[in-house]
Amino acid sequence: MRIHAFHRLFLHRQAVATRVFNARGSKVVRCDYCQVATKYCVCAYQPDIDTDVAVMLIVSESEVFKPSNTGRLILDAVKEGYVYQWNRTEPADEMIALLENDDYQPFIVFPDEYVDVKSRLIEQPVQSFCAGKKPLMILLDGSWREARKMFRKSTYLQHLPVLSIQPQVLSQYMMRKSENEQHLSTAEVAVLVLDQLGEQAASKMLDEWFGVFRETYLLSKTRIKPDLTRPALKHYLAANPQLDD
């Protein structure tokens, strides 16, 4: 299993925490990495695929501790991934340096209705927009309320272009309630953007991996009758036999 930036942030925050974060399902004994019940751990099946994109997650204060978080799944699939704790006034120096690196074309993925300066919106295909530079997809990872706050109050992000997506299907995310059933989870957003960037193999892999996580996460839910045959995992491994060693 490849340990990535989200895992490292989680373990660091866990080590320095002065109190226990009690998310829903806190009584379940979970794997520190995939965050599902240890008896159903899926770390051995983590995706192994190469891409020509980079991803940056900016996570809200408590998001890194939520076992229902799907941002970590993106870094399972995209090997060049960066994760930073959101800070309104003191962003990490490393993050700012990455945003200013001329080798990358950073862009934030966010709905156009919240973009006041419409000239920031990417109107052409995002793959063409990033031509000549490595795409750096920036995702604000938190509840919808937290994501709006991060988008509006982060002055260091205000100059960056914005990619707005219009999902054609309802979210399959069932682990956490949303204000709007058309709001996608962070992983579902990344699936759509990867496809637009021409990374169809990575998009498909992440979509299937998201299905595995959703299925496995729900196995520990007492209100839902679990399907212990794990059809999503079987489908994923059948499509990626190299991962089932």
Rank of each mutant, 00 (worst) to 15 (best):
Q168P: 12
T155V: 14
V169C: 09
L136E: 00
W144M: 01
P135W: 00
S154P: 11
E146D: 07
T155F: 11
A147G: 11
Q166E: 13
K149V: 08
I138K: 09
Y156S: 11
K149N: 07
P167R: 03
I138Q: 03
A147V: 09
M137K: 03
F151R: 04
T155C: 14
K134C: 13
Q166V: 15
W144Q: 00
S143G: 13
K133W: 03
K153M: 10
M150G: 10
R145L: 13
E146Y: 04
R148C: 07
A147P: 12
G142I: 04
D141H: 04
R148L: 06
M137W: 01
Q168C: 09
E146C: 05
I165C: 10
S154W: 03
Q168S: 13
H159D: 15
L157H: 10
L140T: 06
P135N: 00
T155L: 13
Q166M: 14
L163G: 08
L163H: 08
P135S: 02
L136N: 01
L139P: 03
K134M: 14
M150W: 06
P135L: 03
K134H: 07
R148H: 06
Q158I: 02
K153E: 08
L140E: 00
F151P: 08
G142W: 01
V162D: 00
M137P: 07
H159G: 15
P161K: 05
A147W: 03
E146T: 06
S154Q: 06
R145K: 15
M137A: 10
L160D: 06
I165A: 06
M137Q: 05
A147Y: 06
S154Y: 05
P167I: 00
D141P: 04
D141R: 02
R148E: 03
H159K: 15
L160G: 10
H159E: 13
L140A: 03
L160W: 02
A147F: 04
R145E: 07
P161I: 08
H159P: 14
K133T: 10
I165G: 09
L136A: 03
L139W: 04
Y156C: 13
K153T: 13
L160F: 07
Y156N: 12
E146P: 06
R145T: 12
L157G: 12
K133C: 11
L163P: 13
L136I: 03
D141Q: 02
S143A: 09
P167A: 01
P161G: 09
S143K: 03
H159R: 15
P161W: 00
M137D: 00
S164D: 05
R148T: 08
P135Q: 01
K153D: 10
Q158W: 00
P167W: 01
M137H: 02
R152T: 14
T155H: 15
V169P: 04
L160V: 13
Y156F: 14
L163R: 07
L140K: 08
Q158R: 11
S154F: 05
W144S: 01
F151Q: 03
Q158S: 14
P161R: 06
S154A: 14
G142D: 01
L163S: 10
R145M: 11
I165R: 09
S154C: 07
V162Q: 07
K149S: 10
Y156G: 14
L163Q: 07
P161F: 02
V162Y: 02
G142K: 05
V169W: 09
Q166L: 14
M150T: 07
L139S: 06
L139E: 01
K149L: 08
H159A: 15
R148F: 00
L139N: 05
